[in-house]
């Protein structure tokens, strides 16, 4: 295992070293210590490696990740796993705003709570949150799945496209064009699979409700002019 201490190593050197790895590398186990809320930790990685971060990180940890499995043993600041393409990012603590923003693939697991705008503009990523999520989550969410084991805040799924939202607890309010939808067998399967991958064994898909787009704002119509603002 290679250990990088961010109290003595520059962020630049860490990310450069990670970028120099490629598929087939032997250096597959990385540990990052003393992140102390640093921004842009382990961003742009493109290798099937295992990165464990011991402590809390700042903005955009694991941004644009490909292939890597990144575990944050602490909390994550805004935009964790933003635009992730593949791989897996696990946050043991809480995540701040914009978790998984615009993500295209891979799995983001937040074991604590996620703040506002979780999954904003998500484009195919899967996000599983064990706790609650804040307001404006899944705003303009285009594709992928957002699973929330706790409660959702205000305006869930505002202006949502084709992403699927699964919430176990309460939803404070739904955003424009977001409605509760029927849980069909294919949804149960997707959800069951995500719970399994996130290591959640005490819940089953039947505990959840599904939300998604009413598709009424997909085309401009005089009858929905109020929603365009």
């Amino acid at each position: 295992m290679r250990t990088v201490d961010l109290s003595t190593t520059e962020l630049r050197n860490l990310n450069q070293a990670l970028h120099e790895l490629s598929e087939g590398t032997n250096e597959t186990e990385w540990q990052i210590t003393n992140p102390r809320g640093s921004h842009a930790v382990a961003v742009g990685v493109n290798a099937p490696i295992d990165v464990t971060i011991r402590g809390s990180v700042g903005y955009y940890c694991g941004g644009m990740n490909r292939l890597a499995k990144i575990t944050v043993n602490g909390s994550a600041g805004p935009g964790v796993a933003e635009n992730m393409m593949s791989g897996e990012i696990i946050v043991k603590g809480d995540a701040s705003q914009y978790a998984g923003a615009t993500g295209k693939g891979g799995l983001l697991v937040i074991e604590g709570n996620a703040s506002s705008r979780c999954g904003i503009s998500m484009k195919g990523i899967d996000i599983v949150v064990r706790g609650n999520i804040g307001h404006m989550s899944a705003f303009m969410a285009q594709a992928g799945n957002l699973v929330v084991c706790g409660d959702a805040g205000d305006a869930l799924g505002d202006s949502i496209y084709e992403a699927k939202l699964f919430v176990r607890g309460s939803v404070k309010s739904l955003g424009a064009d977001c409605i509760e939808k029927e849980m069909r067998p294919e949804h149960t399967e997707v959800l069951g699979n995500l719970l399994h991958r996130a290591g959640i064994t005490n819940l089953t898909p039947k505990d959840f409700k599904r939300y998604g787009s009413a598709r009424k704002l997909y085309n401009f119509s005089i009858d929905h002019a109020d929603a365009y603002g």
Partner: peptide
């Protein structure tokens, strides 16, 4: 569909956050 794009970036607002976003993009692109 009639696509409407957002008017603000999804994961930052204001120059102080922008500075951090730029750092991220620079780090990703070395």
């Amino acid at each position: 569909i009639d696509q409407r794009s957002a008017s603000r970036h999804p994961d930052w607002t204001g120059p102080d956050d922008l500075e951090i976003k730029i750092l991220e993009l620079r780090e990703i692109t070395d």
